[in-house]
Every structure is written in C-alpha cells, then in structure tokens.
Design a protein around this nucleic acid. Structure first.
Lengths: 226, 226
DNA sequence: CAGCCATGTGGATGACGGCAACATTAGATA
DNA sequence: TATCTAATGTTGCCGTCATCCACATGGCTG
C-alpha cells in the first residue's frame, strides 16, 4: 500500500551516477520501509541514507533536519489516506451508507498502516498550529468529504436537520471524526477488543451507534445499509 | 497536576548522601518536567540525570533502558487520569450527567497534559499486547467505571436497553471511549476547532451527540443535564 | 564488626545528528 | 561546443547520546 506512491520520472538517465536522480523520494520510501520493519520511527537518518545507497550526509540536501523527513513521510501518509477515503465514497449516494463506508475505510487504513498512522498524528507543533507542508491541506480535504456527506444527509432528513447550519455541521463532523480517529487509535494500541469479534465487525457496530447520534428525529436507527 | 503523585517516604535519613534516597521517583518527576518544557519526549536520559543531580549512569540502577523510564512516566499518567475520572464521577447519580462529567474531565486532562497524554498512548507494543506495568490495570479500571455508568443507564432505560448485554456493553463503552479519546487527540493536535467556540464548549456539544447515540428509544436527546 | 548488596560514579565505546569543506555533474549561457 | 554555476553527493569532524564495565560507597544483616 506504500508503493502506490507517485514514482514517475525515476531517473531516465544513467543508472549508477554520482547523482542519485530521485533521492528525495527514495529517502521517504526508505523511511516508510524502515518504519514498517521496526514498528516505530526511531531509526537513524544514517540508516535511511544507507538503505538509499548514499552517504550519511546526502539526505541533508533534501531535508534540513531529520524531522523534515518524518514530516514528508507523514504528509505522504495523509495524502494516501485522503485518496483512499475519497475513493471509498466516490460512487455511494446514500449518506448513511457513504458514512459507513468511509468510516470502515478510515479504520482499515489505520490498521493496515499502524506506524504510519501514528506518525501522521504525532507531528510536534512548534508554533501555534504548524503543520508540515501539505498535511493540513489533505486534512481539510478529507474533512470536506465528510462534511458533504453530513450535509446531504441533513438535507434529506436522514441526519439531524440542524446539521445544515455551519456551526452544527462542523461539530457533527468533529464528532464523527473523533469516533473513527479514536477507534483507529485504540485499535492500533490493541485496546479495542470486544469479546471475540473482529475489528471490522466492531467498527461496524460502533459506526451504527455513531449514525444514531447523527440521526434526525424521523430516522431509523437501523444500520443495515452497510 | 503532576506533583499530585504519591511521594511518601522522601528519605528520612541524611539529605546530602552519596545515595539519593528516592531517585526513582525523582527521575520520573524530572522526566515529566522536561517533557512539559520541551513539549516532547526527546530529551536525553543524561539530561534527566543532570536535573536529578546524579551521574549520567545512576538512572540505570532503576531503569534498565531509557524506554523503561518513559513507560514509568506513562504509567503514572494513566494512574493520574484514572483517579481524576473516578473523582469526577464519584457523587453523580444520573448516568447521563455522569457520562458528561466524565467526558469533560477526560478531555480536560488531555488538554492540560498534552505531552503526557500523547506518551500514554505511544507505548510501542513489543509483543502482541505488551503494556508497561500498571498501565493496563489503570486502563481496565477506567473502562470499568465507564461500563458501570452505561449499565446503570441501560437498566433505567436512559440508554439503549441492549447495553445490558455484555457484548453490547463493551461495544458501547468502546464507542464512548473512542469519542473522548479521539476528541482529545484532535484537540491536542489543534484539529478540533469549530468557529470560535472554546474547546470545552465543543466537547460539550460532541458529548450531547454521543449521548444520543447511546440513547434508548424512549430517551430524550436533550443534553441539558450538564 | 565484617561483609553483602543496592545504589552511585567515572570512563570507554560505537552510533548518531549536524556542520564544513570539497568533489562531481546537469544544464544554462555564450 | 566550451565554460560556468548551482544543485547534489562525499569525506571528515565534533559534541552528545545510550549503554556497558569496573569500581566506590555505605546501609543493613548476621
């Protein structure tokens, strides 16, 4: 799922040159691999350089600090998540079904890429609300998808009509996001065990409850639209 | 909020001895302080030792690895959270009000101790579900408090009666926990902004929606019990 | 009072993050 | 096409870190 990254222009010129040709991307790739292997982000920058086949200092031409590499990896992750979410919801008209699908896609992403997911939400804010380039963008885009679903549902009365108001819509989106984000985190931490149910089944039940929270007065709480 | 830790037996003997007397606790304390100052857990073990006034190797008599110190800090955090949660709910009879109070206490804890909170859920599981000593215990205790509230509410019909079934109860608890955990995380990351509302106000509204998700058929969705 | 064991100290080792000076090459320019 | 330049890599170096080992200290127990 990681290799799905854009890797066009993989140096059309000589293969064993002094200059790598696409080192920046190779470094991010190596970092993602190392993270997946080690199950954390504590590898050394030198290790990444080694894996990319360059000297220990080459990375500094692309990332002033080690954290910048991690930020780039996080940004790639956010982008991947966003694309998976939009893809999951693309062809679904019914807001409830769409929300269901989006939620399960979200949780699935976290479970498939636990280390990446954790990194994506581990960016240490230096300033008041600093985010690495692109992360906030991807985030806002994802959130917009969610808000659109809620708005559509509110308009046709499936969700609380109050959600047509901007402030309420934002709150509703935050609520929904909190559920899936929290559930994903708990699942990654192995804290989301219920009896012998699979995490997918658990997520499904949680989403059903979530939908009831969003429901308008006339809506059924039956979650069978999944 | 950190200094509330149990610090009995603070060396009744000589104050300036070769042996510190309570180094273990002092190290955890120093680590918590450093984390709060740096806003992350990237300080060096030597720095912690320096702050505690001991040699760079003294900590190894209490923590075989640096991670063990972090685990101890995380455990202390979980314990503190558990005590705050139980205290918040202690005298509240109404399940809905109790859940509300517990939620706001939870989110408040995260906001007051963002770095600690992040650490508490950043323990890298080595084995299948390894947790540092005491963390899982505190977690289960917190969860039990939550489940009790839900069960009581289900019995008197305020919450979905299905919650009296064990499996459903666990799912319901997970749902609730996911909301507050997710909301807390998002708040810490500065991603929980709605218009110009304070985070407390936002949390309140989210909890209202959460309660609706838990509600039984006959329950009002009015969250004014707060 | 002698000795043991928990607790601290000092020093050494290999690795790391980051800086600086130097090398190599891809293109732009003429 | 010959050259110049900026981007990209490389080598070497520094201070710091985590961790290991040998040794010091001293409270407690026999």
């Amino acid at each position: 799922m990681i290799s799905a990254m854009n890797n066009s222009k993989l140096r059309t010129h000589s293969p064993d040159t002094y200059h790598h040709g696409d080192l920046r991307r190779a470094l991010v790739q190596a970092a993602l691999e190392l993270a997946a292997e080690d199950k954390d982000w504590n590898f050394s920058l030198r290790e990444v350089a080694r894996r990319a086949g360059v000297s220990h200092n080459a990375p500094y031409n692309h990332f002033p600090h080690k954290r910048d590499l991690l930020d780039a990896a996080a940004a790639a992750g956010h982008d991947l998540l966003r694309s998976e979410l939009t893809a999951a919801v693309a062809k679904i008209a019914d807001p409830r079904a769409a929300l269901s699908k989006m939620s399960s896609a979200y949780v699935s992403f976290g479970i498939k890429n636990p280390v990446l997911y954790r990194l994506m939400f581990s960016v240490a804010p230096s300033g008041p609300a600093w985010r690495p380039e692109g992360v906030l963008t991807a985030w806002v885009a994802s959130r917009a998808v969610l808000e659109n679903i809620l708005r559509r549902g509110a308009r046709i009365g499936i969700f609380d009509p109050a959600l047509t108001r901007k402030s309420e819509l934002q709150t509703g989106a935050l609520y929904t996001w909190a559920v899936v984000h929290g559930l994903t985190m708990l699942a990654i931490d192995g804290l989301a065990n219920v009896e012998r149910l699979s995490i997918e089944r658990i997520a499904q039940k949680v989403v059903t409850t979530t939908l009831r929270g969003l429901a308008g007065s006339g809506a059924s709480t039956n979650g069978s639209t999944i």
